[in-house]
């Protein structure tokens, strides 16, 4: 459960609030994962298992490696030069760092929402349709149907239904981020990675994103990196606390925020450092 138990894979067992949550199958399994940028080590022997159809929050001070770990799940770290990765990441029992893995298939099934909303400089409709066309949907009727469904699911439909064909860059920050979520869920991934999706938004927009995440939980497994303690407490089922590239504690969210097992975690969640 703590860093001491590193050979074992950290997995919250305590059925503090949600009994069903712990019964859910494991979807991501990380074994002794270390990551180096050149000589600098960013992740140190991380082992963690993430359960299906839950919201798992990664918290920790800046530079603790939480975003880096998140980006290991869809291999976005591959884009950076000089990165070396040791250890294993399994999704649905398959090692995603094995040579035969096709990056495109992986990223199709592991979606991502970034810290800063990044819609393409295309229309709202085309932003989502782009993702769909990539993966073989070309019939206009089908496209329209999925675009509408995705926008509804992202709680954006009512705001944009009259201007689907105007530029996505004309939307507000919060709307842009919900569009990015709609774009990610349009291709029906199993897992959605969210890298501080609300950190650039105002409180109102943030609240809408959080609502949305709770909605999406039914259909998707969500891993979210956040700086915001309250946000983690509000929306996540499980929380993992990282510090200096290590996994310090991983447990049910209520447990982490009420009775953390490690002193460091307590100091951080109560705001004594970080």
């Amino acid at each position: 459960m703590t860093e001491k138990s590193s050979p074992q894979i950290a997995l919250p067992k305590v059925a503090a609030t949600s009994g069903a949550a712990d019964a859910a199958p494991v979807i991501i399994k990380v074994r002794e994962l270390s990551l180096f940028y050149g000589a600098a080590q960013a992740l140190n022997q991380i082992s963690i298992a993430i359960r299906k159809n839950l919201v798992t929050a990664f918290i920790g001070p800046s530079g603790c490696g939480k975003s880096t770990l998140l980006r290991c799940f869809n291999r976005m770290n591959d884009l950076i030069d000089n990165v070396r990765i040791e250890g294993q990441v399994e999704i649905n029992g398959e090692d995603i760092y094995s040579k035969e893995v096709h990056l495109i298939e992986l990223r199709k099934q592991v979606g991502m929402v970034f810290q800063r909303s990044n819609p393409f400089p295309k229309s709202i409709f085309e932003n989502i349709a782009y993702a769909l066309r990539l993966h073989g949907t070309t019939r206009r009727a089908e496209l329209e149907e999925i675009v509408e469904r995705s926008l509804r699911q992202a709680a954006l439909w009512d705001e944009v239904k009259d201007r689907l064909h105007t530029s996505a860059l004309g939307l507000s920050g919060g709307q842009q981020q919900r569009l990015c979520i709609a774009r990610a869920i349009a291709i029906r991934p199993e897992i959605i990675l969210m890298d501080e999706p609300a950190s650039a938004l105002d409180p109102l927009a943030t609240a809408r994103i959080e609502e949305l995440i709770l909605e999406l939980k039914r259909d998707f497994t969500i891993v979210i990196v956040t700086h915001n303690m309250q946000q983690a407490a509000r929306i996540s089922d499980h929380t993992a606390f990282f510090y200096l590239g290590r996994l310090v504690e991983y447990d049910a969210t209520t447990k982490i925020f009420t009775h953390p097992a490690v002193k460091q975690t307590e100091d951080y969640v109560t705001g004594r450092f970080g």
Partner: peptide
């Protein structure tokens, strides 16, 4: 809205790419 709860797509292997 797809209300069919927990109908995450079935497992697809990552390697099936021509």
């Amino acid at each position: 809205m797809s209300a069919t709860a927990s109908t995450a797509p079935a497992l697809r292997p990552f390697r099936s790419r021509r």
